[in-house]
């Protein structure tokens, strides 16, 4: 069935994770949970990126013994999204680390990890 091909599964999984992540960010009060949701969100996008690059029945874009040098264009999956994902993962790591650090600073300030305790800047 079409729906059970690997690319559709990854795509659906990606979107589901996306919604889960978004839901988490806006509904969870605990800051750490918000950050975890963000991480899930991030992962979902990576998943989507990779899924976009997949072509059925093809192999990894490395020209070694399993790929014929001259016919590479018909035997490999798309290498570009994989390169993009590498960069995206690192960016996600960076943001997550920063979020955690800011969460720590917030905790030092008010000894609370609830997002609604930090409303001093408003209107």
């Amino acid at each position: 069935m079409k729906l059970f091909e690997i690319e559709y599964i990854s795509l659906i999984a990606g979107f589901i994770l996306l919604i889960v992540g978004l839901w988490g960010i806006i509904s969870q009060r605990n800051i750490i949970k918000m950050i975890i949701s963000f991480s899930i969100l991030d992962t979902s996008v990576h998943l989507l990126l990779v899924a976009v690059g997949y072509i059925r029945n093809r192999t990894a874009p490395i020209i070694d013994s399993s790929v014929n040098k001259l016919n590479a264009a018909n035997e490999i999956t798309d290498p570009l999204p994989q390169a993009l994902v590498l960069t995206a993962i690192v960016i996600g790591v960076g943001i997550t680390a920063l979020l955690l650090t800011y969460a720590l600073k917030l905790f030092r300030q008010n000894s609370s990890l609830e997002i609604n305790q930090y409303k001093s800047l408003k209107w």
Partner: peptide, 25 residues
């Protein structure tokens, strides 16, 4: 206040960049 502002900024940034990346994909 800077920590609070920074955190809100980062979370917003995270969500916005997610949209951007999906769009790019």
């Amino acid at each position: 206040d800077t920590a609070i502002a920074g955190f809100k900024y980062l979370i917003a940034l995270g969500v916005i960049s997610t949209f951007l990346l999906i769009g790019i994909a």
